[in-house]
């Protein structure tokens, strides 16, 4: 609780984020910036990612009653939208949208948390510290994607009847009642990989570590990696799709499919979606 510490952090907070060069290997602000590219054209909506997330991140199964009341804790959910001008039948299929925490650079949730339980890490993640959280739920109010999930019930006492608790991942906490939680890009995996890499005096290699959803996805629709490293696949994809992390309005060719959701609100998300393609002549 030193004043210097506060002031240092404060000045970092007060900067406009993301600033140019923040995630640049040459500038050395940060060695990592985790980002995703999600191809909606090959996402089949199969929910493998959701289940993998339940397995990896100790998500409670809430049951029918509570699901009905909106207490589902799926950190990643598959949304299904029909086209707005649909005729008698949805003749061009439907649209699936996997939605998880977008790890915004200028995250609306971070500024409003009274205790700083959610804040930005150096590698561009929007961290959520369960033990600091007092449950004011302001972050959820301010999240435009509504991907923050509050523990309205004491799930540890109900969601894992013995011996189901043996399945729990010891690398992360089981959240008790009264705290907010959300997708972390499987930070426990990232931390492990980063620590291993540092021990070997190198950076984390591309593809060395991926979140559970990316690892499970049967169609490889999600690409994950360190966007600071220009040779990583995800950085190449962002560049190829002409999506710039630092811009709130992209100037790109109409044939390119990259976009970020609700960019106009300027949260600068770390997840690039790639547009669904439909053969209009079919």
């Amino acid at each position: 609780m030193s004043i210097t510490n506060l002031l240092n952090n404060w000045s970092f907070y007060r900067q406009k984020r993301p600033f140019r060069g923040q995630y640049d290997l040459n500038k050395q602000y940060s060695e990592y910036k985790w980002a995703m590219a999600l191809d909606l054209d090959i996402c089949t909506g199969c929910n493998a990612c959701t289940t993998a997330c339940y397995a990896e991140n100790n998500l409670p199964v809430v049951g029918k009653e509570r699901y009905q009341h909106g207490y589902a804790m799926h950190w990643i959910r598959i949304e299904r939208y029909w086209d707005e001008n649909m005729g008698e039948f949805p003749e061009s299929g439907t649209s699936f949208l996997p939605m998880m925490c977008q790890q915004c650079e200028e995250a609306p949730c971070e500024t409003v948390c009274p205790v700083g339980a959610t804040n930005h890490t150096n590698d561009g993640l929007n961290s959520q510290n369960y033990h600091r959280c007092i449950g004011s739920r302001y972050c959820s109010v301010n999240c435009p994607y509504k991907v923050r999930y509050f523990n309205f019930w004491n799930y540890p006492s109900t969601a894992w009847p013995s011996p189901l608790q043996d399945q729990l991942n010891p690398d992360l906490t089981v959240r008790t009642k009264g705290v907010m939680e959300k997708c972390t890009f499987c930070v426990q995996r990232l931390n492990e990989a980063k620590s291993r890499a540092r021990t070997e005096y190198r950076l984390v290699k591309d593809g060395e570590v991926v979140p559970a959803c990316v690892q499970a996805c049967p169609t490889n629709a999600i690409t994950f990696g360190n966007i600071v490293d220009p040779k990583s696949k995800v950085a190449k994809m962002w560049k190829n799709q002409q999506v710039d992390l630092y811009k709130d309005e992209q100037e790109k060719d109409s044939s390119m499919r990259g976009y970020r959701i609700l960019e106009d609100l300027r949260p600068f998300p770390s997840v690039m979606y790639m547009e669904r393609v439909r053969d209009m002549e079919a």
Binding site: S127, N129, H131, Q188
Partner: peptide, 10 residues
Amino acid sequence: GPYECWQCHK
């Protein structure tokens, strides 16, 4: 050393 919550809090 790192200051980030997630370094130590899991």
